[in-house]
Amino acid sequence: MGTKICPSEQGTLQVTRSSGACSPILKLEGIKKSYGQLDVLKNVDLSVNEGEVVVMIGPSGSGKSTLLRCINLLTVPDAGSIVFRGKDYGPNQIKDWRSRRAFERSLVQLRCDVGMVFQHFNLFPHMTAGENVMLGLTRAHGVHAREARRIAQEQLDQVGVGDKFSAYPRNLSGGQQQRVAIARAIAPKPHLMLFDEATSALDPELVAGVLAEMRRLAATGMTMIVVTHEMRFAFEVADRVVFMADGAVVEQGPPAHFKNPQHERTRAFLSAIGVA
């Protein structure tokens, strides 16, 4: 949509008309992760373009969360490259980094630019909603407290919990908590948002509200990777759906593609959950 400025491979800026022409904002290659004998991720490749909404589906235990966590290195993969906005953060790079300090600086750089929303919200219980949103701004992004407060209020307003600035998480409903968590993640204006089953822990009547916020965010052009079991939402909002099973990407394509999936594994999954 509109004019986009994309960094090219050479690091110079080029102006293009559509997001599709950009090099991917994120490119995962050969991601592997094992826990002991269990191979959780087996050589996963995935690339995501700027502005794209990628929805990951698949059976429980297929490695979706692990893959998502590898992107911001909450989990460090055993092998593979994680190229985000032209810089590789993969485990090969880690070996090259001389000191813990350099490693941590690099991690911080990556995480400051990637927002994450968790299944269980993970709000900080000793801080108010507003303080939850402000913390990253002031302590990771160096925003002055006064400005951070203004941004926090604005973001809470955006997700419909503007009146809860001074409320502690325990006094909020699950839906309100997750909205605060979304505000907290998007306040620093990251280039990529990760959602790991953001509605799975919510009471059924609160799911729609949170999905609406995610839909709204997608409409602003935010690049998003969304793990979800909400199939209607998935097929409606996704630019591309990725089906994972047993630690590998089995098949991917635009939502329409999944009306007639190519792989037996995909068909079995979709019919098991009552789609197709």
């Binding site: 941590e104 750089q109 400051c112 927002g115 968790f118 993970n122 990253g136 993640a185």
Partner: peptide, 10 residues
């Protein structure tokens, strides 16, 4: 994890 994910140092 939430603290790390928002870019806070350890």
């Amino acid at each position: 994890e939430a603290a790390a994910a928002m870019g806070l140092t350890r």
